[in-house]
Design a protein around this nucleic acid. Sequence first.
DNA 1: TGTACATCAGTGAACGCGCGTTCACTGATGTAC
DNA 2: TGTACATCAGTGAACGCGCGTTCACTGATGTAC
Lengths: 193, 193
Amino acid sequence: VRKSKVEAAQSRRRIVAAAANAFRKNGIRGTGLAEVMAAAGMTQGGFYRHFESKDHLVAEACATGLRDALDAMERTGAVQPTVTALIDGFLSLDSKKNPLQDCPFVALGSELARADPRTREWAAAGLLELVVSVADRFGGGEREHARSTALFLISSIVGTLTLSRLVADPAVAEAILGNSREWLTDAVSQPGG
Amino acid sequence: VRKSKVEAAQSRRRIVAAAANAFRKNGIRGTGLAEVMAAAGMTQGGFYRHFESKDHLVAEACATGLRDALDAMERTGAVQPTVTALIDGFLSLDSKKNPLQDCPFVALGSELARADPRTREWAAAGLLELVVSVADRFGGGEREHARSTALFLISSIVGTLTLSRLVADPAVAEAILGNSREWLTDAVSQPGG
DNA sequence: TGTACATCAGTGAACGCGCGTTCACTGATGTAC
DNA sequence: TGTACATCAGTGAACGCGCGTTCACTGATGTAC
């Protein structure tokens, strides 16, 4: 049942997409390869025609998740040009508005810190890309300052989203998001930063 | 080989302490009960004399980790009375200076969001305690404002520490910490917050 | 205070299960002539 | 363009392993008289 090169490439993409989804939902260690392959419409034996090991899939799924977040930001950035609207989007529970909803840093943060070196390299490079991408949204101003602002924004947002997802009560989660929204809006508007 | 009540209580505490350490180092799903029991100086069969399940141990280990962080902060707070010094400590890689080094939110963030309801309740309650404890460090000022500041500080710090632990290069990790240090120091000093 | 016995902390082996990985096999695809 | 054959994407079963959990057992502890 050999498939054509085109079909094989599609299969590979389906596996990575299914993995990114499953990792985000259940964590890396909480996701089995059989589950991923089934979600991609295949049986688990076929996995090793595409990847050397689960670790390799993890690295690629994280890279894809980051790429998706970057793409989502390109689209959102065009629609929401002000910094305030940008922050509101980042700190929203609505996945349509929030380009970081699918971001592996938020969904897998503490697991990524324990991932293998290859994955962490991808993650670090992706973080840099994300910082540059967010910084570009600020338009004018000094470049290094824009990047510093972007890095701080991302740091705070990752922590805020982590805490808001941890609490069970939606009202408390919203309060955590709203609190950071106010502080961050003020912080990036102040000339002192 | 029945042990006395006092010895049994000590055993239980050793298990929880060993679990908190192991979870912090290897994650919840990355830690086996046999490993925890061995670290506590026992064999794995004895586990169920003290806990109903691994989930119960997870909840208790997280609660203990938070309690340790709170205790560490009480001590640090007395030594570092200024807000700037407080932030410097929180954003330091030196575990002696950083009361949040052992905090489960940082070490287990994304895994806790997927934990069972009991654990998440403990975590949410612990977060509130932590907010109040940090807010108390600010001395005077309006109470609600101090808590809002504390919650924002904690949110940002959790994200910053998560990202700094994720990158492999120590220089990059230090840059991430330093960047947040500057921004947060400015943010809490501004009257606008 | 002394004796008899039930309790239960801890041991060590075993349980079923799901995991990541391997492997023999299938048959359409891609290639060489 | 047509034929012969090597390649290899995908299947489905099996592998060893470590996991959380259970269990029969041991013997010091705690208790009732």
